[in-house]
Design a protein around this nucleic acid. Structure first.
Lengths: 227, 227
DNA sequence: CACGCTCATGACAATCACGTGACAAACCAC
DNA sequence: GTGGTTTGTCACGTGATTGTCATGAGCGTG
């Protein structure tokens, strides 16, 4: 069965549209915000995404761009706004189609079928990649990528290696000595280097560096990475 | 340049739409009947077909079905009729999109671009050719062909092998060393060669080489190819 | 509370990584 | 051969990255 992700903040519209689509034979995942939608699509990818443009928080255009960044999934904008500028912007952001509310369900279903006919089977987006997850923090060693809450975070090589080393031992304390050896290859050296890099890393992945949630200090022993 | 075939019997609309599309950078073949359109598409296939529904002689639905029989070309209905029944019928006949006249040219152009992004080019019936797709970038290893937004891109052999090697591991970082070995067969060698070729490749497949969308640098680690 | 120790952080200069243009050798098609 | 294309090397500029250091805050203990 075809699964559709519906991102629409208006409760009435969301529910009625979801029910109508279910009657048409779709399995519908419905959420009320762009953030939820992106998370949902990551967790349980649908075959097609329907998205409203006017959403609380992150707007629809940004939502489309983020979905597109991860994925080649067909996206249809379902919006009340019908002027050319919005339509062009929606399509340029990466949507495949744009329909104006209120929309006949039969038409929407026909457009979904047309789109699905056309959708290509993309070459495995990211194959067999191990992802180390620490709550909202994701580390993909092979992809050289760190994501916080789904958003890519730019880290330097040393920071990345440090993070991977810590992530390889979740919840375990690694001493500065151990880190110096494994990340830097130093046998001896100034242990302060580790502190500095941990600090820089925290700036990037912790919202409150004073109270780190993932990359925590164990006084007198070293650092560890936890959920 | 992208060629579109416009099938529309009303002279005024046909001419003005053709001119408007030409202003948008399309090459337009315009004809006034379904029969002419089908013949024209056989003789000189366009990349996309725009078709009116109410045509003298063979109607638009039948026209779409016949075009579809030959060809997987993207088809957009441009019709004055805006009721659900017509829209569904048009899409079910095989159209990819349906816009209601009068339509803003900007919107139409945006829809054409969106469709083109999505459309697979099956014009030449190449059997069992794997196509590696990265958004608007297509790589056909067997055919030795690279396409950007459907348009063939001329790449040299080394560039092509480099691209294939990266495409074989979508989203994964390959170090310069790995690339040197796999593309050049060098065991050792100047890693800057890789940079230079990546640079040349970017000139050809990235619109803004400063901010590459597909062939990205992972500082300190290497390069990767992504959506 | 005072002390010693540990850790966080900002500043800074040296270094590094990368992108790019130029160029000559190698290669290729004709 | 000959002219054009492709390829590897080099050098330079730019901006990012790195290790060091100094300073001050934080913590635990007596």
């Amino acid at each position: 069965m075809t699964a559709v992700l519906l991102i629409e903040d208006d409760d009435r519209i969301r529910l009625s549209l979801a029910m109508a689509l279910e009657d048409e034979g779709y399995q519908v995942y419905a959420v009320a915000s762009a953030e939820e939608g992106i998370a949902e699509q990551r967790r349980r990818p649908a075959d097609t995404v329907l998205v409203d443009l006017m959403l609380p928080g992150m707007d629809g255009y940004e939502c489309i761009r983020r979905l597109r960044r991860d994925d080649d999934v067909p996206i249809v904008v379902v919006s009340a706004r019908d002027d050319t500028h919005d339509i062009v912007a929606g399509l340029e952001a990466g949507a495949d189609d744009y329909v104006v509310k209120p929309v006949a369900v039969k038409e929407l279903a026909a457009r979904l079928r047309a789109l699905r006919r056309r959708a290509r089977t993309v070459a495995t987006p990211v194959p067999v990649t191990s992802v180390l997850t620490f709550g909202d923090l994701e580390i993909r060693p092979e992809a050289g990528e760190v994501r916080l809450d789904g958003e890519p975070v730019a880290v330097t090589r040393t920071e990345f290696r440090l993070l991977c080393e810590l992530a390889d031992h979740p919840g375990l304390v690694l001493s500065r000595q151990q880190l110096l050896q494994r990340v830097w290859g130093y046998e001896f050296g100034d242990e302060r280097v580790v502190d500095v890099h941990v600090g820089r890393l925290r700036q990037k992945i912790e919202s409150d560096t004073g109270k780190p949630r993932h990359l925590v200090t164990v006084r007198g022993l070293g650092y560890k990475l936890q959920l």
